[in-house]
Design a protein around this nucleic acid. Structure first.
Lengths: 164, 164
DNA sequence: CGCAATTAAATTGTACGCAAGTGAATTTTG
DNA sequence: CAAAATTCACTTGCGTACAATTTAATTGCG
């Protein structure tokens, strides 16, 4: 799908061959930068909160996954977070050193490593209300606005990913 | 929404002391993760395009800043991108090695390093239409939707940042 | 069955991001 | 005006991200 869009999808691909006005090329007009810088702003907003429980932000995301289901193979965690083993292997090693998870080979398939919450890791779940409450404060918008924005981003992420 | 909102600002802070339903704690319901994973999706979408011109995604953002104004101190670039010198110093060193910029001490204030586009760096500007065109394709939404989403993210970023 | 292809995780190397600390230049202040 | 405080960029150390490679285990296929 490339050339002359005849009908309804045409409006969706307007940028392709158009000459882009200089104003639209400015950093602050870039959607990609808005996403990029907001992601950093989130990480910074989480930092003082997560410091109190000794987690980095990506580690917190892994814990969110494990609080949904307490034992998962590395591969599944990677699929949910869209991270590969090159990122997860050292991260999980640090979570293990922190005593929050254990890693064991799956006896059914020795290639797989099953990540399991320890008691300590499970207990940390009780702090999630506080963490999300504090962040909710910082986000400063209504639940409806949050849900709307989240859904739009999920759609965008889908578009960006679909042609991989 | 949720509870008894007393005043007009209450709607904006509803999450604070509320008990959060389990469903809302799932990874996929987190706005922070939507932003995080979309940012990664953008980086991946840009990669094959930027590989052709030999830039990483953060380097491309620096070039966007410099294409707006061809000579700037490191500090100003950092302010626009919200990055500190610990990130920018090595990145700029690589851009200099690529021949796209030069770095010179400001004679008026020897603490400052002025980053200036080389001819080569300036010439690369001509490729920005192609880059943005290709990404525009991948984004797959209308210009209106893009602008709306960008503005909402800028607002969110502002909220997250204002209490720093 | 036996070997090639595939899969899962770890490892290596490069490039961010950021906190903390260093050193040089400038500004502020007593 | 001189000492103290601040500013700017750089460096160091740690933790992601991700491509590419490696190793071990499993699956598929003839």
């Amino acid at each position: 799908m490339t050339k002359a869009q005849t009908t309804k999808t045409a409006t969706k691909t307007a940028t392709r061959t158009m000459k882009i006005p200089e104003e639209e090329k400015r950093l602050e007009r870039q959607l990609c930068f808005a996403v990029y810088s907001t992601a950093h702003a989130f990480t910074r907003a989480y930092k003082p909160i997560l410091d109190k429980v000794g987690l980095t932000y990506p580690q917190y995301l892994v814990m969110l996954v494990l609080w949904e289901k307490a034992a998962l193979p590395v591969k599944t965690i990677g699929e949910q977070l869209d991270l590969d083993s090159g990122t997860l292997s050292p991260l999980l090693k640090r979570l293990e050193q922190s005593g929050l998870i254990v890693r064991t080979r799956d006896p059914r398939d020795e290639r797989q490593v099953i990540v399991t919450l320890t008691q300590e890791g499970d207990a940390m779940r009780s702090q999630v209300d506080d963490i999300m409450g504090e962040i909710g404060q910082a986000i400063g918008c209504t639940l409806e606005e949050m849900a709307d924005l989240r859904e739009k981003l999920q759609g965008l992420r889908g578009n960006l990913t679909e042609t991989r």
